[in-house]
Write a protein that binds this DNA or RNA. Sequence first.
DNA 1: TATTGTTATACTCTATAACTATA
DNA 2: TATAGTTATAGAGTATAACAATA
Lengths: 148, 148
Amino acid sequence: MTSQPSQPASHPELVTMANDIRLACMRISRRVRFESDQELAPHHFSVLARLEDAPRTNSELAEIERVSAPSMKRTTTHLVEAGYVSRADDPLDGRQVILSLTEEGRAAVERVRRHRDEWMLDRFATLTETELDLLQRASAVLGKVASK
Amino acid sequence: MTSQPSQPASHPELVTMANDIRLACMRISRRVRFESDQELAPHHFSVLARLEDAPRTNSELAEIERVSAPSMKRTTTHLVEAGYVSRADDPLDGRQVILSLTEEGRAAVERVRRHRDEWMLDRFATLTETELDLLQRASAVLGKVASK
DNA sequence: TATTGTTATACTCTATAACTATA
DNA sequence: TATAGTTATAGAGTATAACAATA
């Protein structure tokens, strides 16, 4: 026991819990992607989800997704050709190109997201009422762990 | 409410929870990998972790990891050259080559795993005692959701 | 002949460096 | 000259097809 109450790394049950929860999250994440990423490759879905919030330039997307500008260019070119993203010149700065989600792109994102949630709901169907209730209350805590 | 008690997809709060928990798991998973996969690429770590349980042939690893035999061959060749994996002819079947974890490989897996758990423990340090207790009890349920 | 491992070749996603156009 | 976008080229990981060795 150290003098810092908010540094609980020395508690063996916390180490066990860290491992258990990390493994569960990684397995759930892997299986969700495995079951649901048939329509859209992971890096394509990721970019479309970013454009859902607001239109972006290629450079902005590259920085957010932490890939190089040419890599993102390749991805966005593919998405434009697939009809999921549209390009528009910036009227204020002729160097920039604004990328936006098309209706088709928005629908594709929603389909993938619905598919992913359906997988989770299928898993929930194996739980008891008590387990569902516990998970419900722990949900916010898990969100806090995941948050920045 | 339908006639099937184990098909709760029509409950709106379950749909919300499915989305919340899925997102939290995917974010945690992504951040764990982003923070911890500096030493070993994901597909390298994955193969080493499989060899931790038992020695395997290249074909077995390819099937487990769902990649082609030539792809796995490339990965295992790299791991052998890095000193993490050793090759041995099968005395019973001259066609087969048995791949095993070296001590160095075992140590690398443990380092990555410890690093990943440390990230989780850092996040736990932001939680209250009540939240930690709730997470502790929900841990087994999450494991059940993640299980096959 | 069937199976295991390997090599040959190609495609995709990633990167860095160089080039073009606009500010 | 600085910045956004783009093009050129290369490296890593994946795949399928073909080949070699063993059962």
